[in-house]
């Protein structure tokens, strides 16, 4: 099941539509010893989930198995879209392709999603969005989904 989903991710990544990617990330995270993969409601909280205060705003991130990851800032939802995109490091090292979150707010500034080398993707996104908002808040428009 997991292998099959992994292949799906590769396939979808190549096509540029990677809606399955977050599902796999979630499954890997809860598939440790003793935990049931695909349980209807038994999945333990993902260790990467967070709820904390950053620069005076409450940031809450949740990684969902079989669904899309969720992010709330001061209880306002920010809809996330996963894209596969080229990253071009400013230090001149080789460009690489990775899956990344974009949203209404960081629409041109993808943030690499959680994977083996980058556990804090969702939190990095949360902090980036807070930095962009400054004293302001998200509006209801930010919660509207968007497919790429």
């Amino acid at each position: 099941m997991t292998d099959m989903k992994r292949r799906d991710v590769l396939r979808y990544s190549a096509a540029g539509a990677v809606t399955a990617a977050t599902a796999v990330v979630g499954i890997q995270a809860v598939a440790g010893p003793g935990s049931a993969v695909g349980g209807e409601k038994a999945a333990a909280a993902d260790p990467r989930d967070f709820e904390e205060t950053y620069k005076g705003k409450k940031i809450k991130g949740k990684h969902n198995a079989g669904g899309k990851d969720e992010l709330h800032i001061n209880n306002k939802k920010l809809a996330l879209t996963v894209i596969s995109t080229l990253f071009i490091p400013e230090d001149g090292s080789e460009p690489y392709v990775a899956n990344a979150y974009i949203s209404a707010v960081n629409h041109y500034d993808p943030v690499e999603i959680d994977n083996d080398k980058n556990k804090e993707g969702l939190k990095k996104l949360a902090k980036k969005v807070v930095d962009m908002l400054g004293d302001l808040e998200l509006s209801d428009e930010a919660a509207k989904a968007h497919t790429h």
């Binding site: 306002k76 949203s103 209404a104 908002l133 400054g134 302001l136 428009e141 930010a142």
Partner: peptide, 11 residues
């Protein structure tokens, strides 16, 4: 606007 404001924002 996805940012709750009536003022155009630039950073």
């Amino acid at each position: 606007s996805s940012i709750a404001t009536s003022f155009l924002q630039r950073r």
